[in-house]
Nucleic acid binder design. Structure first.
Length: 572
DNA sequence: GCCGTTTTCGGCCCGACTGTTTTCAGTCG
């Protein structure tokens, strides 16, 4: 998608301007525009110039640069800046702790052009004596290079949240904390997390910090102050802890939950009302009097807004929606009545129907769909037509004995490389539902892949498309498909799209979920469970749905089973 | 470079920590 390419260039322009020491607001304008372009749910190529101008943070000039890029594949101003500033300076910027000033100075004084050179000179103590650099700074530069090598990549939320919760528990038990909450992108439930933000109140902040930096999780202490400390844990994730006063807790929670763009919008609104918002509270400009901040809701109330749930705080229209009273009533985990993508021992799952039923009942579900793999997926012991019919008999028998619970009989049928399905229509029509998905041939062209998915969607028996983009967070990118095309056919045929809740998938993602809702496409949230504890992944799927502005009514598996089957193709 | 129910000019969010400084610049979130 061109959106990412343009965002990347704008960010690079911002970096270059920063090195040049340009007007900081101009730099911010580029970064803001980059962020907004990246968050667009549509490809920027499909948007008219007037619409581009409506994107916040994009005016005449940047719209022109976007057009220039789409037309010529480059932006002249960007090329010129690159001529002016050596490539190496940008690379140095990527080292944590090195900003534009240091980067420029290193280049000018020692002609350092890349990180390898920097590392060599630093380890030979050749940096000491440069302006503002002594032993400690040199040490920190080497540390920064180490961190960069380990990668500062984002981690899937499913991996980070359990660790974060464990740290919170440790602090609760061993440190004198009163209130304690996770903040940041973790609280906003982004699909990937860069670092863990924790906020607490305490009568003894110093002791909290002491306990924090000595937690068994901690590998390295980056900074330790009285109100703020930062550590790296063994999983190479950064953890920030902030301690604030009780009467500032709400303001601090809002502030550290972000997103940054959302906060800036709130502060701008506050300014216009003669107010000032920071992490300590809400203040009246004229006399500095504090008028709120103990509760998070204060921040919104004082601006005349309803409470905005953390998942929506991305500056993607939520503030406007709040002003106009049209914030969605978001779906919750409790709304989910059953899981529609579950594997059993019949294919590559680990449990019998009985075990799965028992686990599902414990979660308060009233149904699950058994959707074992089809024969094309040999590695997963996929089922043949005969085995599927055999499975149907067994499930029918079990259903007769069940009260207040139902097994929906389905299959996860493989979409072959030519777009045909791995199980014949004669057998598919015997099933309650059919989940279809791609498991191979990810490298096909956009046209081929789009054709495969649309062929499956057009099949009269296919109820749901599972993990439609095939991404595995941190391992495999989404495959190249024309999502607008897929959505438009799904809408026509009333085929449901899955939010796969498996933490590495989270597929479709929040942006697509929001788009799907706008188009009125039915959505299901399902876990792809292979072992019963994976039923718990549902929470991540619900988070994606919430981030996509989905309400209970937008998600089919909030319905009772009878209504559900009437709404799922082929509408039984 | 963007933006406007005070404005088409003059604003633009705000604070903590570190290391190197004698009062603050740089970096980060």
């Amino acid at each position: 998608m061109k959106n990412q390419e343009i965002a990347k260039i704008f960010n690079e322009i911002a970096d270059l301007l920063e090195i040049k020491g340009e007007n900081p607001f101009r730099i911010r304008a580029y970064r803001k525009a980059a962020q907004n372009i990246e968050g667009l749910p549509k490809s920027i190529e499909d948007i008219t110039t007037e619409e581009i101008l409506k994107v916040p943070g994009i005016g005449q000039d940047l719209a022109g640069k976007i057009e220039e890029y789409l037309k010529t594949g480059r932006i002249k101003a960007h090329e010129e800046l690159k001529q002016e500033i050596p490539e190496g300076l940008l690379t140095l910027l990527s080292v944590p702790g090195i900003g534009p000033k240091t980067s420029k100075m290193l280049y000018e004084k020692l002609k350092i052009k890349n990180i390898a050179e920097l590392e060599k000179l630093a380890s030979e103590h050749k940096l000491i004596g440069l302006p503002g650099i002594k032993e400690k700074t040199e040490e920190n530069i080497l540390k920064g290079i180490e961190m960069l090598k380990r990668g500062r990549e984002r981690h899937p939320i499913g991996r980070v949240l359990p660790i974060a919760n464990d740290i919170v528990e440790h602090l609760r038990k061993n440190a004198p904390v009163d209130k304690i909450d996770l903040a940041g992108s973790l609280r906003r439930c982004k699909d990937t997390i860069k670092d863990i933000d924790i906020l607490v109140t305490s009568d003894n902040p110093k002791e909290v910090m002491r306990v924090f930096v000595h937690l068994p999780h901690v590998k390295d202490i980056l900074m330790q102050g009285t109100t703020k400390s930062t550590v790296i844990i063994h999983e190479d994730i950064q953890v920030d802890l902030r301690v604030v006063e009780k009467d500032s807790y709400g303001a601090a929670l809002a502030y550290f939950t972000g997103s940054k763009a959302h906060n800036i919008r709130l502060r701008e609104m506050a300014m216009k009302k003669g107010l000032k918002i920071n992490e300590y509270g809400i203040f009246r400009e004229r006399d500095e009097k504090k008028i709120g901040g103990e509760k998070e809701d204060d921040v919104y109330k004082i601006l005349g807004l309803p409470y905005i749930p953390p998942e929506l705080r991305e500056d993607q229209g939520e503030i406007g929606a709040a002003q106009e009273g049209r914030l969605p009533n978001l779906i919750t985990l409790e709304d989910i009545k059953g899981d529609l993508h579950v594997h059993s021992k019949w294919s590559d799952g680990s449990h019998t129907f009985e075990q799965l039923i028992e686990a599902a009942k414990k979660l308060g579900y009233s149904y699950i769909a058994i959707t074992d793999h089809s024969k094309g997926l040999g590695i997963a012991r996929g089922l043949t037509e005969d085995r599927l019919l055999e499975q149907k008999k067994e499930i029918d028998a079990i259903n007769k004995k069940l009260k207040g619970f139902k097994i929906i009989h389905g299959v996860e049928v493989d979409i072959r490389s030519d777009g045909s399905l791995d199980i014949s229509d004669d057998v598919l029509k015997e099933l309650d539902i059919v989940v279809a998905s791609i498991h191979s041939g990810f490298k096909q062209s956009k046209k081929q892949l789009t054709h495969r998915l649309s062929s499956a969607i057009k099949n009269p028996y296919v109820s749901i498309i599972a993990h439609p983009t095939g991404r595995l967070i941190g391992e495999r990118d989404a495959y190249d498909i024309d999502m607008e095309e897929i959505f438009s056919i799904a809408k026509k045929t009333k085929t449901a799209i899955e939010i796969n809740a498996y933490p590495l998938r989270l597929d479709i993602n929040d942006t697509y979920a929001k788009r799907a809702k706008e188009l009125g496409i039915p959505i299901v949230i399902a876990t792809d469970t292979h072992i019963i504890n994976q039923f718990g992944y549902m929470r991540y799927g619900v988070s994606i749905a919430r981030r996509g502005w989905l309400g209970k009514d937008d998600v089919l598996n909030t319905l009772d089973v009878d209504k559900l089957l009437k709404r799922l193709k082929p509408f039984k």
